[in-house]
Design a binder for these strands. Structure first.
Length: 519
DNA sequence: AAGGTCCTCAACCGCGCGTTA
DNA sequence: TTAACGCGCGGTTGAGGACCT
């Protein structure tokens, strides 16, 4: 589908550089110095003009290209064409297996940071990578396969842990901005939205969307930000600012919203009758205790100042569930597999679910954090204090929750099997799902809990005992299994989107086997 | 062979950030 | 201080080829 192979090259006469004679089918109402700006596929003649111009004048100042080259293309279009097709250092052709592998690894670490990924793949463009990934994702989702191979999960986990060691949570003490990024940053509103919008998702249609939702990585970016100052930027820099403002606003303002209540819709939706469990699984209590105890803190804890600014009108699109953001495994690794960031990725949820406006979005107020003033810092400090004060309560409440009805062993045994049924809309206990998060949510900053003491870690260990080693390779079986269990898709799929006890072992095996052949 | 569907990917769009005047 | 501009990024769209019935 080469654009330059088009036979309409004549549309732009050779030697048109400097000539305003390029016009023909102008796509839109935009006008440049050369008349209406053209849109659509580039012709070889246009390519030649652009190439010549850039060769002569260098890259940059793309609007000048449009002005001086005679191209009836906006600077933006010129830049894109050059970057994606004309650059001399571009590597054409299909991705090599090595490149594919690298992309997977990079995505596990970075999420949808296409430009960054492209920087790691010489000769490849962000657009190429993005298209490749999206295609690949669709394929795998159709096949009901996991997005990441276990070894990459493991690798991402290890890297994430390393980076965590470099900048561990001690930084919280000195970096108030990081404090907010903790396990309590749960997009309760998102779940609320699930309820609000569940009518959009007739159970039969859940398969793909649910899968997509689940495949979302937790907000690894959060961890990333915490642990490795991704790209030299601060914490949430990895999260698209636009999204933070346009979508996330609605994520957190409703932190006072009972998580259980929010998820009730989900459980109800999936007809697994786990609403009760959800309500008591402890997450809600943890949330409520911590967040509702201080509404300000609920918004102040929002990383990057996600505090609601308004009703977030832009996030009302009902298309939320169809988004396929595949979050970074780092997210998964960090947020799901490590005690430090236990909760579902804010970004992933954020990205996946464009929250419709809710009453919560209005209930929120600007977080003091956003002010950048001293009081914000003080406020931050207070929030931290409150957080710590609540930690014990939360933890205990979690333990006491009905979720405990699910013994770890029981829970994990079935969950694992459930993982193999990625498209099963039917339910598993949502409560059990949260049981994994819960422990983490109750973790304390000043207690980088060991795996032994956090329920989540215990779960992992048990999971590892139950998992077939061949899935991940003998040596890494345990770790890989841990990874699997830390995967958001696994967690969600097994807990929220299917009734407990209703598992598809065939699917599981199919998926398990797929790892060895589909990469 | 024709029609329909799926898939790929180039290109566009909207947005935010940084710089500059 | 702020508005304008340039740029880059990520998400989405749609044309066209491939495949299927």
């Amino acid at each position: 589908m080469s654009l330059t192979s088009e036979s309409e090259d004549q549309m732009v006469p050779k030697g048109a550089i400097g000539s305003p004679s390029i016009e023909e089918t102008s796509g839109g109402g935009n006008f440049g110095v050369n008349g209406p700006l053209k849109k659509g596929p580039w012709t070889t003649a246009e390519d030649a003009i652009l190439h010549e111009y850039v060769t002569k004048h260098g890259e940059g100042n793309w609007n000048a290209v449009q002005k001086h080259s005679g191209l009836a293309r906006c600077g933006k279009s010129c830049r894109l064409r050059w970057a994606n097709h004309l650059r001399p250092d571009l590597k054409k052709g299909a991705f090599t297996p090595e490149e594919e592998r690298h992309i997977i690894e990079l995505h596990a670490k970075m999420g949808n940071k296409w430009a960054r990924m492209a920087a790691e793949l010489p000769g490849r463009t962000d657009n190429e990578i993005k298209n490749y990934w999206n295609t690949r994702i669709k394929r795998r989702q159709r096949a009901g396969l996991p997005i990441y191979p276990p070894d990459i999960c493991l690798q991402a986990l290890n890297e994430n842990k390393q980076s965590e060691n470099v900048s561990n949570f001690s930084s919280v003490d000195t970096h108030p901005d990081l404090l907010p990024i903790n396990s309590f940053e749960i997009p309760a509103v998102e779940f609320k939205n699930l309820e609000l919008n569940h009518h959009l998702y007739p159970p039969p249609l859940l398969d793909v969307p649910a899968r997509s939702l689940l495949d979302i990585p937790a907000n690894g970016l959060i961890v990333q930000g915490l642990t490795s100052s991704y790209g030299g930027k601060s914490l949430l820099s990895a999260v698209h600012p636009a999204k933070r403002l346009r979508q996330s606003e609605s994520l957190f303002p409703g932190l006072t919203t009972s998580f259980s209540g929010s998820f009730t819709g989900c459980s109800k939706y999936y007809n697994d009758g786990s609403a009760q469990n959800l309500q008591s699984f402890g997450f809600s209590s943890a949330y409520d205790q911590n967040l509702t105890s201080d509404q300000h803190s609920s918004s102040s804890v929002l990383p990057g100042g996600h505090a609601p600014i308004n009703g977030n009108p832009s996030s009302s699109e009902p298309t939320w569930a169809m988004k396929l953001e595949l979050p970074s495994l780092q997210t998964q690794m960090g947020s799901w597999a490590s005690p430090s960031s236990p909760l579902p990725s804010l970004e992933s949820v954020d990205t996946l679910i464009q929250s419709p406006p809710t009453e919560h979005t209005e209930s929120g107020s600007l977080s003091p954090r956003n002010s950048g003033l001293l009081d914000a810092v003080l406020y931050e400090s207070q929030s931290l204090k409150n957080f710590k004060d609540c930690t014990c309560q939360q933890t205990s409440s979690l333990v006491q929750g009905e979720v405990m009805e699910n013994s770890p062993m029981d829970f994990h045994g079935t969950e694992w099997e459930a993982y193999g049924d990625p498209v099963s809309p039917r339910g598993h206990s949502s409560a059990s799902m949260f049981s994994e998060y819960t422990p983490i949510s109750g973790s304390s900053f000043d207690e980088p809990q060991s795996l032994e003491i956090i329920p989540g870690s215990k779960i992992k260990q048990e999971a590892g005992e139950m998992l077939p080693t061949e899935y991940c390779g003998k040596d890494d079986a345990l770790n890989s299994n841990q990874m699997i269990f830390s995967r958001p898709d696994y967690l969600l799929a097994s807990n929220c989107f299917g009734p407990k006890g209703d598992h598809n072992k065939e699917s599981f095996h199919a998926e398990r086997c797929s790892w060895g052949t589909s990469w």
